[in-house]
Design a protein around this nucleic acid. Structure first.
Length: 765
DNA sequence: TCCGATCTATTTTTT
DNA sequence: ATAGATCGGA
């Protein structure tokens, strides 16, 4: 017996009948349709524990999730159930990270080295942008994001560049969209990735599929290895993922998928709800389990969510119910502006926290778009409420981080084109645009990587003068010297060496501006993370001779990391995140902000029913994150892309039963307990944002009572104050009308050029 | 090639 | 509002 069976039996008692049945259904295919909050993660983790308890070797279990966070959480929970030793050996990870790992081992069958680079969407967009430029295409018709999306859709449907170029449907669609050359961009893009020994996110799936399709022996090896396959969030799988799972499970058919069609929110990137329906065709003997009891939320929340989702036509019937208390009414906040919305949300958090003595982690603010975090952040900061933003990629997509990572990538994989282009003149080394253009053209002509041309420019007939040649050689020599270090030292030492010798750190140090300082800090933070990786890895792998703590190990899936994966010592913070990022999480108190037409539902998604239904599922996901209380909020006006916009309340607000919502009232901060209810029309004059802002603030900082002046008469020499930059002196005023702007010298910050249309300035003298 | 000034796209969601 | 790309002059 691998470990004590007793605890598992004990744990099994905690399950309800359906959960229990799903957990102990050991062999054969199974689908678990799990309503929100019905304990699906629990079923998955217990199932893994149950398999282990029944003598299944941990090496034979594969468990796939969509986010690293979900994978990590599951791993922790499993380790708690069955002990670290067993738990660690189960393959648990995201589709992308697991397949990336398989491709490191097997990629040679497809002509990839094991140190291939993973391009994140930023990198691939850069590459696409370059190709568009090289082909001299109109970058209005061919916007990189559009092309990237198009290629991504093709890849997730397993359509290669060659197949794309021969597919009449796709071609005519592109023709009528007046973008007939997408096929050429796709072809070039694929070639360039291959030449750079790089894969983008979609390639990780695409190539895994090709590997399994074309190399039956390899497929057989993994079928043997993964005798039990578990999949979380099955409703979000795309076609490529579906077929890979199909192949993997074909031998043993021990596949257990868990999902909820009502929570499918990734159709926009190719997820296919139909995969749930296909399941019964592929595995006719499958067992279906439905988890309908919600353990997470109050009756009112469950009922509101059910009512909302009932408006969707496309759904699998199920009845989510709960035994929990009736609970609070759903809160409602109506603000005049986005800033006021932030202040009211922050204030409500502050009050609830004080009244009920709750920690910050009890609260989450969810929004449709990441850009909405700003006003919330500002408001929380004013009230000294600590918060953490879980926004996609912000840390890893910072320029300085990308730069350092690019040096490391280039050191590991010299063929990495994006890394080379990014680093070669950063800091400036006198290798400019002209030279690199010649190199790119030569690389293209001889079908080799940029690195090869760089090393022996003469061989590829690049016409450059000796000075430039020397510069290129110096750069190549430097990268080669880094590569030598790589073999000798641990990850931290090499990374630090690279940061210093490349001149990157010096460059930012010399900047001596607040931005420069924060860049240096970010680089140091990355170096710390690498250090931690070395230390932690060494501890965990004690006695494991395989583990070197080397930099390539660190880099292996750094491209797959997001901000949410950084650890944070101080955990007690309010969470700010997009609804997409909140999937799978729960919080006692949830604020859903920006419930306005054209924002949520998004303006891009209101034209078709299916898109609108996806937005509604998103709203459903948001509502069902809450355990105790949901508060909905919207603002009557909002700045969007620098424009002041008047907004309409979201249609979703009307889809909730009025009886469940706290009477629409203006949250008067001065009279927080007031029964006063406000009309739903215009706010009365007492509720100017400024007055309000003054009332909420507690700390007595400058920003609180900030009243911007009319800057029409602003003149050179005037002393002004800015809420963020502090006091300063106007150096110059230029431009006319809406483009009028001022250059202001702020003490301790330096010159800032501000558009008066936007800048909030107070004239002091 | 470098530097500063000017223009522009960005905002949907993520691995 | 802002970062990044682009342009033009030195």
């Amino acid at each position: 017996m691998p470990f004590e069976l007793i605890p598992v039996i004990e744990f099994l008692k905690q399950l309800n009948q359906e959960q229990y049945d799903a957990v102990v259904h050991k062999d054969g295919s199974a689908m678990v349709i799990a309503g929100a909050g019905s304990g699906k993660t629990r079923v998955l983790t217990y199932r893994v524990a149950y398999l282990l308890a029944n003598g299944v070797d941990p090496f034979h279990i594969l468990s796939l999730t969509f986010t690293n966070k979900a994978a990590r959480e599951m791993k922790e929970r499993v380790m708690n159930l069955v002990g670290d030793q067993q738990g660690r050996n189960v393959w648990m990870g995201t589709f992308h990270s697991v397949f990336a790992r398989i491709l490191r081992i097997e990629g040679h069958h497809l002509g990839y080295p094991s140190n291939y680079t993973i391009y994140d969407s930023d990198d691939s967009k850069r590459l696409i942008r370059n190709i568009i430029k090289e082909k001299d295409l109109d970058n209005k018709a061919y916007s990189p994001s559009y092309v990237a999306h198009r290629i991504s859709m093709a890849k997730s449907n397993l359509i290669s560049a060659e197949e794309y170029a021969n597919n009449p449907d796709l071609l005519s669609a592109d023709d009528s969209a007046k973008k007939p050359l997408i096929k050429d961009i796709y072809l070039t893009y694929s070639n360039r990735l291959k030449k750079a020994d790089a894969m983008d996110f979609d390639d990780l799936l695409f190539n895994t599929y090709v590997l399994f399709r074309d190399f039956p022996k390899v497929l057989y090896k993994y079928q043997q290895k993964f005798r039990y396959v578990l999949v979380d969030e099955y409703q979000d799988t795309n076609h490529a993922q579906y077929l890979i799972l199909n192949k993997l499970a074909a031998l043993n058919e021990n596949i257990c998928v868990v999902g909820d069609d009502a929570q499918s929110i990734y159709a926009f990137r190719g997820a296919h709800i139909g995969n749930i329906l296909n399941f019964k065709h592929d595995y006719p003997d499958f067992k279906l389990f439905k988890l309908e009891q919600n353990y997470r939320s109050t009756k009112r929340i469950v009922s509101a969510a059910n009512k909302v989702i009932a408006n969707n036509k496309d759904q699998i019937h199920k009845t989510v119910w709960t035994d929990n208390d009736e609970g609070n009414l759903i809160g409602y906040i109506k603000a005049t502006s986005d800033n006021e919305e932030g202040a009211m949300v922050a204030n409500s958090i502050f009050e609830t926290k004080m009244n009920q003595q709750l920690p910050n982690i009890a609260f989450a603010v969810l929004y449709r778009t990441n850009a909405q975090s700003r006003s919330i952040e500002e408001a929380l900061r004013k009230l000294n409420i600590p918060y953490r933003i879980f926004s996609g990629l912000s840390f890893y997509s910072r320029k300085e981080i990308k730069d350092l990572l690019a040096y490391i990538r280039l050191t590991i994989n010299h063929n990495d084109e994006d890394a080379l282009l990014r680093t070669i003149n950063m800091p400036a080394r006198g290798i400019g645009k002209t030279t690199m253009e010649k190199v790119v053209i030569a690389a293209d002509a001889y079908n080799v990587s940029l690195w090869e041309v760089l090393n022996t420019p003469i061989r590829f007939h690049v016409k450059i003068n000796s000075g430039t040649a020397a510069k290129l050689e110096a750069f190549a020599t430097m990268i080669k010297s880094f590569a030598v270090e790589l073999k000798k030292k641990d990850a931290f030492e090499v990374a630090q060496h690279i940061a210093t010798s490349s001149g990157l750190l010096r460059l930012y140090r010399e900047e001596d501006t607040p931005e420069g300082i924060s860049r240096v800090e970010n680089i140091e933070e990355l170096l710390n993370a690498i250090k931690e990786f070395v230390v932690k890895g060494a501890e965990q792998n004690e006695g494991d001779m395989e583990y070197q703590g080397s930099l390539d190990e660190f880099m292996q899936d750094v491209a797959l990391l997001t901000d949410a994966d950084k650890d944070d010592e101080d955990k007690d913070k309010v969470s700010l995140m997009s609804i997409h990022a909140a999937k799978g999480l729960e919080f006692p108190h949830v604020f859903i902000v920006g419930l306005e037409e054209n924002l949520f539902p998004s303006i891009q998604s209101i034209s078709t029913r299916t898109e609108l239904e996806e937005e509604r599922r998103l709203f459903y996901v948001a509502l069902t994150r809450a355990q105790e209380k949901v508060t909905l909020s919207h603002a009557e006006s909002r700045y969007r892309w620098g424009q002041f916009t008047i907004t309409e309340p979201s249609r979703f607000l009307e889809e909730i039963d009025e009886k469940l919502i706290d009477k629409p009232k203006r949250a008067n901060i001065r009279l927080p307990q007031s029964r006063q209810t406000m009309p739903q029309k215009r706010p009365d004059k007492n509720f100017k944002p400024i007055e309000y802002a003054g009332a909420v603030n507690s700390a007595g900082k400058k920003e609180e009572n900030f009243v911007p002046s009319d800057t029409a008469a602003l003149q050179t020499g005037m002393r002004v104050e800015h809420p963020k930059f502090g006091k300063g002196k106007v150096i110059a005023v230029e431009g006319q009308g809406p483009n009028k702007k001022a250059t202001v010298f702020f003490t301790g910050i330096g010159n800032k050029s501000l558009l008066l249309r936007f800048a909030r300035l107070r004239i002091l003298s």
